[in-house]
Amino acid sequence: MGPSSDGVERRWSPIAARLLVVAAVLAGWEYLSASGSLDASSFPSMTDTMAELARQLLSADLWTALWNTVRGWATGLAIGGSLAVLVGTLLGLNRFAYLSVIPVVEFLKTVPVIAILPLAIVVWGATLQMKVFLVAFGVFWPLTIQVIYGVRAVDPVVRDTAVVLRLRGVRRFVGVTLPSAAPFIATGLRVAAAVGLILTIIAELIGGAKGLGLSILTSVNAGPQRLPATYALILVTGVAGVVVTSAFARLERRVLHWHESQRNLAPTGA
C-alpha cells in the first residue's frame, strides 16, 4: 500500500467523505422539499422534521413509547434467548434427540413468524404479553439452530481431552461446551436482537400495543400536519436500530476477543 507518512490523512479522509455524504443527503432532502419536487403533503422538509424531533425529545410521550418498545423487545429477547440456549444445548449434546427434533426446528424456522401474530392478537389483545410472545417465538427458532451447531462444533481434540480429564456435568458445560458454542450464540444473538426489534415494531403497528410502532401509526393517521412528527419517530426508530445493532456487535467483539480467529470461520447462520 502507499507510504505511511500520510497515515493521518488516510484515516481522516474517509470519515470526512462520510460526513460529507450525510450532509449532502440532508441538504438534498431540504432542497427537494423547498423546491417543491417532494410533495409537501407526503414528505415534510428536513428542518421541520429535525425541529419536531427536538421537540419530541423533550416530551414525555416519546420516551414512554421508546420505553414500551424497549421493554417488549428486551423481555422477548431474554425469554426466547434463554429458552433457545437451554433447548439448543440439550439437543446439541444428545445425538438421538438432535436427529429427532431437528426436522421440526428446521421446519418451524422457515415458517414466517408473522403467521402467528394474528393468533397472538386474539389471545392477548394489544398488550405487552402479545409483543413479548411474538419476539420470543421469532427469536427462538433461528437461535436454537445456532446453539445446536455451536454445541456440536466442539473441537474433537478438546472434547477427547475433556473425556480423558473426566470433566463432567456443569464443569464440562462451562469449561468446554459453552466456550466452543459462544461464537455461534453471539452471532445468533446479534441477528436475533435486530430481528426482535423489527418484530416489536410490527407487533405494535398491527397489534396496536403501545410503543414506537403505534406512535408512528397514530401520527400518520392524524393527517398531513403531523408529517414531521411521523418522520421524526421513524428517525428515532432508526437510531434505536443503530444502537441495538452496534451494541451487540461491540459486545460480541468484547466478550469473544479471545475467539477472534475462530469467529471468522464460524458460519453466520445462513
Binding site: 462520510r18 455524504v21 450525510v22 443527503v25 407526503s42 435486530a194 426489534l197 423489527i198 415494531i201 410490527i202 403497528l205 414506537l212 410502532g213 408512528i216 401509526l217 400518520v220 393517521n221 411521523t230 418522520y231 419517530l233 421513524i234 426508530t237 432508526g238 436500530g241 443503530v242 441495538v244 445493532t245
Partner: peptide, 17 residues
Amino acid sequence: PVLYFVYVIPTAALLPA
C-alpha cells in the same frame, strides 16, 4: 453510514408512511 442507517431502520416503521 447512510446505507447503514437505512438498513437498520426497521422497514416496518416506514410502512404507514
